[in-house]
Structure formats: C-alpha cells, structure tokens
Design a protein around this nucleic acid. Structure first.
Lengths: 344, 344
DNA sequence: GAATCACCCCAAAGCGCTTTGGATTGCCAA
DNA sequence: TTGGCAATCCAAAGCGCTTTGGGGTGATTC
C-alpha cells in the first residue's frame, strides 16, 4: 500500500492525504480522521526512502566506529553510549546509522556518509589530542558533535565532555588527604584526549601537594582487565610500590584488585584504589554500596545528552556551536583507606 | 554535484554516466574512464537516498535493541557482535541501522522498519524460548537471521548459533572427570534461550554421571560481575558448598573469583571455575595463557558470520532458510584443579 | 550495395513521497 | 449583487537516481 493507492481509495489527492497524515493545518478535521482511519485499516506506512528523498532529510544520525587489525578492541563504553543515544533518537523519530570501518578508511567514511546524504548529523567518538576528523567535518559543513574534546584543535566545534582533569584531580586529592603519598596511575592510551586530561589532573593534584609525578609508577594502555592486572603486578613488585592506585576504568580496577590479592595484600587495607566509573551496565560498581571509591559519571547519560544536543543543532536553523561540560561525582566505596602519612 | 550536472559537464546522458559508474558493460572503456576521472575531479558521490529509492534496496541491515526501564542493561556481548557484523557490512557496501526501542514497542519497530523499506534485512538478537518476533518477521516476508535459536518456535527460520548445550555438557563433563561432584551453575536469565540450553547441557552431564541436579546450587540472573559475586557468596556460605562452579560468562566468573577470594579460598585450588568465554575484547581471558578454564567461542566471529549469512540470504533470489551451528572449544586455564573424588 | 549486427549512447519513465502554486467553494461584509 | 476571504482540496513539479526501450553508427556479411 503506497500513498497513491491510499489516496485513490479515499478519493482524495495524494497531497491531501500526505498533509492529513503529517498534521498540516489546511485539511478538514473530518477528512483527516477519515484518512487516519484508512491508513490504519490498510496498514499504510510511508516509504522512508521516498520520504527522505523528497524532504532532503534522512532522519538518521551517523556513528562511525573505526577498527584496526592491530587493535581489535571495541571501546568499552561504546555499548552504553549507543544505548543512551539510541533512546533519544527513537524518541525524536531518528535512527542511528552505524558504520564500522577500517581506520585507514575512516576519513573517507565520514566524507562518504555526509556527502551522499545518508545522515543528518554525526557523532564523533573517542577524539585524540589533535583529531583530524574535526577540521574535516567542519569543512564538510554537516552538523556534528564530539563526545569528548580535542585539546589541540583550534577550529571551533560542538562537544560534550566530562571534566576529566578535574575528576582525576579531585580523586587524587582525596587519596592525598587520606595520607597516601605514593600514588600510581593506570590510564588508557595517551593518544586519547581523555587519558591525557586525566593524567594532567593526576599530576596537578600531586604537584599541589609538592609531590613530583613519578613516571615509573604511571602506566597507560588498553582498558582491559588483564592490563590492569599485569600493570599492578609490575608496580607491586617494583622497588617502591605505591600505597594507592588511581585508574581510568572499572575494568582496569578489576584487574588491579586481582593483582593486589594475588600478592597476598588486601584492597582498601594495604593498597587503595580509586577509579573512574562510567557506570557501564554490566560492570556496575557493586549492587548496593559502591565497591570501589570512584569518580562517577554515567556514559549512558552522556550518550543521551549528546544525542539531544546534536538533534538541537540539526533542527535549529543557525548552526551554532554548543558545548557542555559535566563534573564527575566522588563516591566513597570500600577500596580506599587511610594511607601511611595519616598517622604522622 | 549531482548526476545531472556531472553528465552535462561531460556532454553525456545521465544514463551513460550512471552506467559507466556502476560498471555496466554497454559503455566504451574510454568514456568510462573519462566519466570516472570527472567523478573523481568533481568529487561526485551519488545521493544514497535517491539511489535507494530508485533501486528499491536500502543497502542497510537493521538491528533492533530493546531496552526497558527495569532492565537497563545492555547485552554484554552486543558491542563485539556489532563490531564483527559491521566489518562485514562495510565490506559489502551495507551499513547498519540500529534502533533502540522500548521493549513494549519492539514489535512495531520491526514492522515499521520492514514495511517502510528502511532495511533489506534484520538480525534478531537474544531470542527467548518462544520468541514472538520470529513468526512475526516471517509473516512480514523480510529476510532475517536469528543470532541464537528459539527452541519452542515451530516456524522455520534462519539462524546461527553456538552449540550451548554441548558446550556446557562438555565443560561440566570436564569438571566431573577432574573429580568434582558438587558443581554449581551460575547462569544468565533463563527466559533467554541460550541460558536454558546451557542449563540443559549442565544437567545432562551431571545425569550421565548419576548425579541429580540440585536447584539449591543453581542461580540465574543478570550477567554482571556483582551478580556473580553475590551468588557465589551465597553458595559458599550455604550448607553444602560446591567445589566447582560452571558459569555462563566471563563477567560472572570475575565476580565468582572475587567471592572465592573474599572467603579466604583460592580459585583453582579450593574452588574450580569453568566459564563460557565469548572473547569479549575488553574482557579477554588472560593476555598470554588463559586465566579461566573455558568453553570458548568468539562472539565477534559470530557477528561476522551472521552478517555474511544474512547478506547471502538477501542477495540470493530464493529466500531459503540457512542455519549454522558452531561448537565451542574447551581451553584449559588456571581456574580448575582436581576435585575431591579424584583421590578415591 | 543492402542487410545484419555489435557497439555505444540517449530520452524518458519510473521509484513514492513532499511541496508549490493555484482552483474551488461557501460565506460574509459592503 | 459582488468582491474578498477563509477553508479545503488538487494537479503537477520536483527530489536524484536507475532502468527500459529504443536509435544511431560503422563494420561485417552475403
């Protein structure tokens, strides 16, 4: 059943039927009802391909996720972010077009998707410090929003981010106040902007207490449980093991805890852990009380907000830049305890 | 730059230009080259919306992920499955349309997406025992493929699954051979088909050794680390604690291990763990050697295979059913050791 | 030399919607 | 009576591509 058939059965023009269904004012309420009833009866559903061609809007948002043979890993927060964004999209009649492309093809994927008119806007994931995609998209003149920031990019662009620097500053600060002085960092890959910012926050908190950051107890790499584990074993077996560890992800924290216990120590008592908790749905930080002391910020909520912001940007005539910075919240769990400097 | 403009600049008809670009034989190689060069020069890219309308194919595969307020959890294997499928899609010129819908709207989402012509095929995720979506999609007459199976559904349909029954049978068998007699199960939610099958395999292995399944040491619930932890504490604190635990996910296994260690026991020595390992990229089973003894089957590879099968189904004229069953592979890790019956 | 046949190319008709620019009708004020 | 004005509705022109059904042109065959 298409529009022509439906309009023929109703003895109305396609124009009128289309307008009736799309809520235009220039149609009698009685006919509108007649049309709506017939549409329901015949189970009419406008062909979305024709619709997008006619309107020029695709009602779809693009997400491009790069993948490389070397780094097979999927971003751990990806699923929850997508779930959050997707909720908002479907509420607004949009859907999500996801392209998984080899990373050497990523740029051309953006170009392709934008110029072919496949999407009305794009979300950029996991920006690096000097992310080339941003200038590129700005030039393509398509609405886009970055989840995160790219510190070294000068082109103005829209973004939504959590204050990573402040989060790790605050977290490290908390450990310092507890009396820890030798605090390690296990971070994500430092080409990622968020990882750099977190490192900055960590370093800056130490400095404000007159402690120089020590490269020998800083690690960065893939955010996986085994990496957290292996890094921690190294740290604990090193010449001057830390009494506390700050880390970028709950999945790393799981590995860290395992290593601590493997060395016969106890988390909280012997070594404290403070982690960043994105509230990943299958890795909740405890069921009732938080297990880990954490800087918490829901990535799912971030996904929702990014989607909203991008839709606003698309529907608003002026393509104005919009930005939003969230603060992570400190939650106290069982993974931290007073450190050695507390008793002095 | 659209087709008309390009053809005008070339002094050719739209027909010829279109044919040249799409590799039709009835065009001179010289003109084809001329067209290709001009297309590259002017950065011409066919409008995908017009293309899909004209061809009737959308070159897009639909994935619908339900979400409910009660169960906010994203399926843990989702991201890797998507990544695998996405690779294949982009290699074949397809992309992926993802809709996140409230679960009460799921059926109408399928109908909508199919009838509106938004997608050429659909992947069905996480089927339940008697999944209503299957008959529904079969009736809509759109190619679809189920990742998993629905045991109670009688309509024929295409699926790709891992042999869950056999996997857990084999895993449990292995523990029995090691001398374990009291083996617990920590499973996913049993409305899910895979969880039921895994349970069946576990029960059947026990029975073949003359052991009756004991409901008091079987758990099912969300696949999260805290659930594994909480369940294990219950089991260990119960009247007759198990000497081995079989579980459905590596994320549960992490929680199980934590509980074991929390009770002063050691994984492998005091309590053995055997888990199903989907090879989730951020939760690898160890870096070099496997940490957990596991039944292993890559969900990413499954995503790839599902995508291939669905594309075949779409491009093959006959809508014939196709099915594929994979076997999981037993890998021996450090989480299992001989049980009490071994010395007798 | 006429007929046949590849080989290239083209005009035009869709695909199924939206939207522009009227046309028609009935009603009311002048 | 007539002009003006809402209120409704419609025909037709896109949107940018693919594809059908030819139509020339030059070479080959008889």
């Amino acid at each position: 059943m298409n529009l022509r058939e439906l309009s023929e059965r109703l003895n109305l023009s396609q124009t009128t039927v289309s307008r009736a269904l799309n809520g235009y004012p220039e149609v009698n309420e009685a006919t509108r009802k007649r049309v709506a009833d017939a549409a329901a009866l015949y189970n009419y559903r406008p062909n979305i391909r024709a619709q997008t061609l006619a309107t020029g809007r695709s009602m779809s948002i693009g997400h491009i996720i790069p993948f490389s043979k070397q780094n097979e890993m999927v971003n751990i927060v990806f699923a929850d972010f997508i779930a959050g964004a997707g909720e908002v999209y479907s509420r607004h009649g949009y859907n999500m077009t996801l392209s998984v492309v080899r990373d050497e093809d990523e740029m051309s994927a953006y170009r392709g998707v934008a110029e072919k008119g496949a999407v009305d806007g794009i979300i950029v994931h996991s920006p690096t410090r000097n992310d080339p995609r941003i200038a590129f998209l700005a030039e393509l003149d398509i609405p886009f929003l970055v989840h995160g920031r790219a510190s070294e990019v000068t082109t103005p662009y829209s973004w939504m981010d959590v204050n990573n620097t402040r989060a790790l500053e605050q977290g490290t600060q908390y450990l310092l106040e507890l009396g820890h002085r030798r605090i390690a960092l296990i971070n994500g890959q430092e080409k990622m902007d968020f990882a750099q910012r977190r490192r900055d926050g960590y370093v800056s908190a130490l400095q404000s207490w007159g402690i120089a950051a020590d490269e020998t107890i800083m690690r960065s790499g893939e955010m996986s449980e085994p990496f957290g584990h292996a890094s921690t074993l190294e740290l604990l077996d090193g010449p001057a093991p830390p009494t506390a560890i700050v880390t970028s992800s709950i999945v790393l924290a799981l590995g860290i805890r395992r290593a601590i216990e493997e060395r016969g120590l106890r988390m909280g008592r012997d070594v404290s852990i403070l982690c960043f908790d994105d509230e990943i749905s299958y890795l909740p930080n405890g069921l009732d009380a938080p297990v880990f002391t954490a800087m918490r910020s829901s990535v799912r909520a971030a996904g929702r907000r990014c989607a909203e912001m991008l839709i606003e940007q698309i529907t608003t005539p002026a393509h104005d830049i919009r930005t939003e910075l969230w603060d992570a919240e400190l939650v106290i769990g069982g993974s931290t305890a007073p450190g050695p400097a507390k008793d002095t």
